[in-house]
C-alpha cells in the first residue's frame, strides 16, 4: 500500500487512469487525433527530458531523429514492402547507431556549441529528406501504408489512441526506472558539475552517450508510430522549428521531471489548436506564452506547481 502512494507508482497509476478514462470525454475523431499527437510528442519528450533534464545536455536536433524514424517506416514499408514492425525496429537501430556515432564528438562540446552541433545535424537531416525526392517524395512528403499485425490492419484513430497511449505508459515506466538506477544517479552528478563528477570517477562521456542514444531511439520510435498513425509524413517533421517545439515542451513542463515532459507535450500540442482561432495573432501569442512561462516559471510547470503544493500542505520545498 505504501508503494502505491509513492510518487513514482502513484504517478504511473494516475497516468494510466487518465489514458483509460480520457475516451469517455473525447467527443470525436479530431480530439482522438490531438490525443495521439500529444502521446507521441510526449514519448519524444520523455526521452529528451533524460538528456536535457538529467544529463544536462541540450539538443536542438531531435526532430531529425523523429523524422528519420518516421521515414524509415515510411520508405521501407511503402517502397520495399517491409513488415511495419521490422521497419520500425530497423529505424530505431539505425537512428541509435547514428546517434552513437555522432555522440562522442558532439557530446565533448558544451552549452552553445552543443546546441549548434545538434541543430546542424537536424537541419542536415531535414535538407536530405527534402532533396532525395525519388526516395522520400521530397517536400510534399509521402503516404505511409497501414501498420499490419498479421492480417489485422492497424488503422483508425481509436486504435491508434490505445497504441500510442500504451507505448507512452511503457516509456514513462522505463524512464522512471532508468532515473532510479545507477545510471540515473551518475546522471544527476553529471548535471551538477561535470568536472566534479569526473573527479569522483564517473565516466561522464559514457553516460552522456548512453542517454543521447536512448533519447534518439525514443524519438525514432515516436516518429515511426506517428508515420503509421497519420499515414503521411513530410520533411517538416525534421525541421528546426519542430526540434524547438520538443525542447520547449520539455522545459515548459519542467526539466528533470518525467511527468513534466508529458504535461509540457500535452500543453504545447493542444495550445496551437486553441490559438488557431486567433488567426493572424497565433504566432504572436505563442511567442508571448513561451517568454512569460520561462520568466515566471523557469523550472517549468510541474516542478513549480509541486513546490507550491508542498508549501501549501506545509512540507519542505525541495
Amino acid at each position: 500500500m505504501r508503494r502505491l502512494l509513492d510518487a513514482r507508482t502513484g504517478g504511473l497509476l494516475a497516468l494510466a487512469l487518465i489514458i483509460a478514462l480520457l475516451p469517455l470525454i473525447l467527443p470525436n475523431k479530431f480530439y482522438y487525433d490531438v490525443a495521439i499527437k500529444t502521446a507521441l510528442n510526449a514519448l519524444v519528450c520523455v526521452g529528451l527530458n533524460l538528456l536535457i533534464g538529467y544529463a544536462g545536455q541540450i539538443s536542438l536536433g531531435h526532430a531529425g531523429f523523429f523524422a528519420l524514424g518516421g521515414y524509415a517506416s515510411a520508405v521501407l514499408t511503402a517502397r520495399y514492402q517491409w513488415n511495419g514492425f521490422a521497419a520500425m525496429a530497423v529505424g530505431m537501430a539505425g537512428v541509435g547507431l547514428l546517434a552513437f556515432i555522432v555522440a562522442r564528438p558532439i557530446l565533448r562540446l558544451r552549452g552553445h556549441y552543443l546546441a549548434m552541433a545538434t541543430l546542424g545535424l537536424g537541419i542536415i537531416i531535414a535538407i536530405v529528406l527534402n532533396r532525395e525526392i525519388p526516395i522520400t517524395g521530397g517536400p510534399d512528403g509521402m503516404t505511409v501504408p497501414a501498420l499490419r499485425l498479421g492480417e489485422w490492419r492497424l488503422i483508425g484513430t481509436t486504435t491508434w489512441y490505445w497504441i500510442s497511449g500504451g507505448v507512452l505508459l511503457i516509456a514513462v515506466w522505463l524512464a522512471l526506472n532508468l532515473i532510479d538506477s545507477g545510471v540515473g544517479r551518475a546522471l544527476r552528478a553529471l548535471h551538477g558539475s561535470e568536472v566534479a563528477a569526473e573527479t569522483v570517477g564517473i565516466d561522464t562521456t559514457r553516460y552522456k552517450v548512453l542517454i543521447f542514444v536512448i533519447s534518439a531511439v525514443f524519438a525514432s520510435l515516436a516518429g515511426s508510430l506517428f508515420a503509421h498513425a497519420e499515414r503521411f509524413i513530410t520533411p517538416t517533421e525534421a525541421g528546426f522549428m519542430r526540434s524547438i517545439e520538443f525542447v520547449t515542451m520539455v522545459v515548459l513542463g519542467g526539466m528533470a521531471s518525467t511527468y513534466g515532459a508529458v504535461v509540457g507535450a500535452a500543453i504545447l500540442t493542444v495550445l496551437p489548436q486553441l490559438l488557431t482561432k486567433l488567426h493572424d495573432y497565433e504566432h504572436l501569442a505563442f511567442g508571448a506564452v513561451l517568454i512569460l512561462v520561462m520568466i515566471f516559471m523557469p523550472k517549468g510547470l510541474v516542478p513549480t506547481l509541486q513546490n507550491r503544493l508542498r508549501h501549501l500542505v506545509g512540507g519542505q520545498p525541495r
Binding site: I58, H283, I295
Partner: peptide, 23 residues
C-alpha cells in the same frame, strides 16, 4: 537562468517579433 531557459526565451522572442511584424 540556465542556458536552455534563455535559449527558449529568445526563441519565443523571435516568434513573437515575427508575429508582430506579420500582423
Amino acid at each position: 537562468a540556465s542556458v536552455v531557459t534563455i535559449i527558449i526565451i529568445t526563441i519565443g522572442a523571435s516568434i513573437f517579433i515575427r508575429g508582430v511584424v506579420q500582423v
